[in-house]
Write a protein that binds this DNA or RNA. Sequence first.
DNA 1: CCGAAACAGGACCATTCAGGTCTTTAATTA
DNA 2: TAATTAAAGACCTGAATGGTCCTGTTTCGG
Lengths: 154, 154
Amino acid sequence: MLKLSRLADYAIVILVKLGEQDGVVTSPALAVITGVPEPTVAKVLKVLSAHGFVLSQRGAKGGYRLARSLADMSVASVIAAVDGQIALTACVGGRECDTGLSCGLCGSWDVINTAIRSTLEGISLESMRPKEACPTVLSQINKLNAPHTVREGA
Amino acid sequence: MLKLSRLADYAIVILVKLGEQDGVVTSPALAVITGVPEPTVAKVLKVLSAHGFVLSQRGAKGGYRLARSLADMSVASVIAAVDGQIALTACVGGRECDTGLSCGLCGSWDVINTAIRSTLEGISLESMRPKEACPTVLSQINKLNAPHTVREGA
DNA sequence: CCGAAACAGGACCATTCAGGTCTTTAATTA
DNA sequence: TAATTAAAGACCTGAATGGTCCTGTTTCGG
């Protein structure tokens, strides 16, 4: 599967969504927009803030906004921020393998890692903007656009 | 981190090592060569056999050998065999997202997935052959080449 | 003919780690 | 001063991976 973590997935979605709003947006609001649970959104946002992807404003009327344009954020950089270094194996950078495994392939993995990394660096968040959103999902977004529905459960 | 599973890691190592031997090799022997625990080697080998990467010979004097050349095996195919489909997110093939997440990015992920997959398909196991093995690991391999040390614990 | 060696297949357990929640603190604004 | 909101971190839970073991079947050697 080689799948990336859900947190990284969320991070990308959140950033793209944040880029579509103007002004600061609170994490509860982003939770509604993205459908991700509020605490998780807050958690992701904190990480993104620490890595300079978003700017935070505390206090009342506070919230988050993008630190720079989506075009200036690569998928690779976001994943690296949330999940750490992008590497397909524990055997990175020519160092010996984790368990002293006598794989003898140490250097070879870097070929793969580099290839993957450069592939991901070539994809900006701007290019992740939805051209054609899933129809089933569109209705949900519209439904949530009513601002006052946020308060229901809280 | 986007790291692939350890099983897939093992599979690649085992295949490369198997390609360096001639004749059939038993899984205990491969365990010694690779440093991976025997039961795990056997497990990986079974999967590889089921997917046609290796040929098995049962009974005494049995063992495994490559079904085809390392050059004819891509990293992508091995990973797919061991771990299943290569995909960076649950949102694959344009289907709607898993939890009805209103990400609205559905189609965009495929760009990434395709890029990763083709990158990995372009790397053959032959190119994973060690040109310069880690020095710390080389000694370990030499030490294990003495055939009778295998019997110790068994 | 019998026993050992080795693969086949599956069940099973344990550990790890990611995901998610909650609590407290600090800052900002009205 | 009170209310709102982000910041930070501790903590719990659950799924999934990794790893082990058991039983059966096949083949070779004595």
